[in-house]
Design a protein around this nucleic acid. Structure first.
Lengths: 201, 201
DNA sequence: GGTTCCAGATACCGATAGTATGTAATATAA
DNA sequence: TTATATTACATACTATCGGTATCTGGAACC
């Protein structure tokens, strides 16, 4: 914890408008996509002018970046909350992937984080954020399993990315599916089998 | 084959400029990305004016769409060429995934088809193209294996998408990797194991 | 109580996608 | 052969939008 210096009224207001801008941006970007959303519209939705927006964020990309960070942080928190409860590591992995899959079902997450973010922020920056949040959790879990000799594969980093890619893809399918309730168990089975392929037998 | 009606000189010229526009677009989009590339630049590179471009393509997105179709067709052709030679179906699958992975290593393919296309064309249209070309091959192969009772999983469509997603992700990793020669065998092993998890034992 | 500083507003610029219209060349029909 | 229709392409213009430079009012601080 950093020393909680008393915030001035000004700083409070400033922070509040920053949050309002973030919320407006998330909402509009998710609803219409990044390029279809004008900076002007975001500012209006947050009830400020474009000047205020440019005071808080360097440019449109920086605003989008902040939205993505926020979404990734939220997803990671949701996953961690559920996984922490599990004592067994394989169970933790299982619960974690399921929780992440659930997080991916949020339309805003799918559209902004999975679809648009890599192209807009660039793969490098995208991976930075991903590793700092949800992907980082997965990597850590797999590395831990590897240390215990429970994972029969030498590259947890590679494996985690492959798993994450699959989960994202599957989330899109589930979201687009007209019969998700029949698709869901198949997805679970496939993931189960794949994980087993890397588990010490 | 449709009846090869004699082409007039005009039609030949027209087709040639269309191809020139496509080639210029592919080159520039791949080099700088979709949004960073102006319509004007594409027209100039093809040595025509923007008017000509808008004559051949409805808008910028349609131009991009055509480029993506061309790239996907090329990839599918490369995969089919290599896979057709194999008599055994599992071998065919193996060779096919490897060939597709190789196709994904083309920077233009990675950037335009994998990264930008879903966001720009929309997931629906993207899947249409994908299913018509490389993904379609994979689905067909898996369905054939399923019919033979060789595949112990009920949803070849789902599985093929999961595999394709992984391969795309892995291609990005290989491309970014500083030591692809050490990464490659690990990738091969992982894919091998995953396929085995769905193979009749 | 005057000065500094900063959140936010206003006004402007440049780039670019898209449109409306014009033109010259070729195909087609009388 | 001449007249008409069609087509490929060019030119000029508009609207939108991201970004910047400049300004202002009020809170914090000496």
């Amino acid at each position: 914890m950093e020393t909680e210096r008393e915030k001035s009224r000004r700083e409070e207001y400033s922070e509040a408008t920053r949050q309002a801008l973030l919320a407006a941006a998330r909402q509009l970007f998710a609803a219409q996509g990044y390029h279809a959303t004008g900076i002007e519209a975001v500012a209006q939705a947050a009830r400020v002018t474009r000047g205020a927006l440019y005071h808080h964020f360097d440019d449109k990309k920086a605003l989008f970046d902040a939205v993505v960070v926020q979404l990734q942080a939220g997803a990671a928190q949701a996953v961690a909350r559920r996984a922490r409860a599990e004592p067994d590591k394989w169970r933790r992995l299982h619960v974690g992937t399921e929780a992440y899959l659930e997080a991916c079902l949020d339309p805003a997450y799918r559209w902004l984080v999975i679809q648009e973010a890599p192209a807009i922020l660039g793969r490098k920056r995208y991976q930075e954020i991903d590793e700092a949040y949800p992907l980082g959790l997965l990597i850590a879990t797999l590395m831990s399993l590897r240390r215990d000799g429970e994972l029969t594969f030498d590259d947890p980093d590679l494996l985690s990315r492959m798993l994450a890619a699959m989960i994202c893809e599957v989330a899109q399918l589930l979201a687009d599916s007209e019969t998700p309730q029949t698709l869901k168990p198949r997805v679970a089975e496939a993931l189960e089998r794949i994980l087993r392929a890397f588990r010490r037998s």
